[in-house]
Each structure stands twice: as C-alpha cells, then as structure tokens.
Amino acid sequence: MTALIGDELGPRGRRRVLVGSVVASLGVAALVVVAIQRFADRGQLDAEKWSILAEPAVVGFLLGGLANTVKAAAAGMVGAVTIGAVMALGRLSRNRPVRWLAASYVEFFRGFPLLLLILFSAFGLPRLGVRLPLFWYLVLGLAVYNSAVLAEIFRAGILSLDRGQREAAVAVGLTDGQAMRLVVLPQALRDVIPANVGLFIALLKDTSLGFFVQYEELLRRGQLTGNFDGNLLQALIAVAVMYIAVNMALSRVARRLEVRQRRRYGGSIEVKGGPEDLVAPETAARKENVGV
C-alpha cells in the first residue's frame, strides 16, 4: 500500500515536511548534476556516442537482440508450462513414488542457480553427444529451471480451489481424471494466469544469462555493438532501458489481469500500489456488500 504511515500533519509538521522536501529535492538534483558532470567530463555525453544508437543498423541490431530474447523466453515458457503442469499433477498424484519423484524434481531444480544449469546445458551436453543449436541449450536450461517454479505455482492454484468443486464433480459421476480435467484444472489455470505473466517477466530477465553462452540476446548484442562503435557504456545503458521498458509494461499487464480476475471471480485483492489499485479496493468492497 502506498498509504503513508502516520497521520494528518499540523502546521509545524507541514513546515518541516516542506523544508525536508526542498532539501531532499536539492540533494537528488545535486546527485543528478554530479552524474551528468561525470559523463560530460569523460566525454561520455558526446553527441556521436549517443547518436550512433539511433542509426537504423544499430536499432535493427538491438531490436533483433530483443526479438531473440523474447523468442528464447517464449520457448522456455512453453517448455516450463508443459513440464510444470506435469510435475504439479505428479505432486498431487495418489501414487506415492510418482509424488516423490515429482517432488524431488521440483526441489532439486529450484535449489541451485539457473546459470549452473545453462552452463551445463550449453557446455556439458555437447560433450555427452547431445548436439543442438545454441538457442535450444539456453531454452532447455530456462525451461527446466522455471518448470520447477511453475510446478509450485500450479500446485498452489489447484490446492487453493475450493474442495467442493472436486467433490461436486465426483458426486455427479465424473471420474477423478474427468473431475481434474473438466472442473479443477480450467479454474486453477485461470487463477494462475497473472502469476504466469509474472514468471514470463522473470524469464525475460533470465534470458540475459544467454550472455554467458554467446547467444545473441539483447545484452550480448548491446555489448557487441558497443565494442564495435566504441560506445559500450551508451549501448549498455540503451539495453538496460529497453529491458526496463518492456518489463514495466508487462508488469502492468500482469497487475491489470490480476485485478480484473479478482473483480470478476472474487477473492481478496492484494493492494500493491499503482493506478490499478484505485479500482480494486472499491470493487472488492462492493463484492462484500453483495455477499451480505
């Protein structure tokens, strides 16, 4: 919640806040000035260092890197959703060995760094005779690691669904499998859509680990173009800005989806700050009124 801690200020408090604000603004402004000064002193603000970034060839190269990033993340996501769903069902299976296997898969792959997995995939697998294009080594690492995360998200989604849904399904004569497939899963999957968008953002960020295996995603391409044109710092800053812009946009989408779903299907709304929240508590309150 963005709500401040504390209460309505009196005249003296307001004066102090005003003074504090002025001092803080000056401090922030001073920091910005020092930073700009530093850039200028070292010739890093030279127009040509930045204007190269706007040349069509460079823009195309970087956007191509972004496309590679999105491609790897999307392929990784598809793999992660597939394996993750299987593992989530495995963990909820009635069969003890299946449950145990799925649980160890999840615990094992969640426990160590994704980078280790990607290095193993890209450098270890070729020596073991598994030859794939570079892209797929990265995707494999991303998919396996994130499937363990997704399995937990799916499992939570299935478990959080009201028991009555499954019981009712069985009561009208559906088999266990049918109840899961026709009643439980559609609702559980719907509930975890926002979490999935959140995970996709994480995957986009994780794709930058492709940097380590020479996959030409956004970061690697930023480095290549920066080294080529002699404006490494500027190119890397451009890459960071691109990442931040894409991820912030996606975060907003995730948040919107969440609020919309909660509004439509009920459930509590976690207020996180941001303009979307303005509609959320109000609709939540309305929902409660209907209940009463």
Binding site: A3, L4, I5, G6, L9, G13, V17, G20, S21, A24, S25, V28, I201, L204, K205, D206, T207, S208, L209, F211, F212, L219, Q223, L233, L236, I237, V239, A240, Y243, I244, N247, M248, S251
Partner: peptide, 29 residues
C-alpha cells in the same frame, strides 16, 4: 512510507528500475 514526497519518489524509481532490469545487465553495465 515517510512524509517527504521527493524521497518517496526516489525510492519508487529505484525499486522499479532495479526490479525490471536483469541482474546480468546490472553486472555488465
């Protein structure tokens, strides 16, 4: 959560920027 708006803003900018930027990018930059 403090009373001073510019500091609230600076904190928010920091969190948004860093959370949306991959760690590898931060390292390389």
């Amino acid at each position: 959560v403090g009373p001073i708006p510019p500091l609230r803003g600076a904190g928010a900018v920091y969190v948004e920027v860093v959370r949306n930027c991959p760690l590898t990018v931060l390292f390389v930059v």
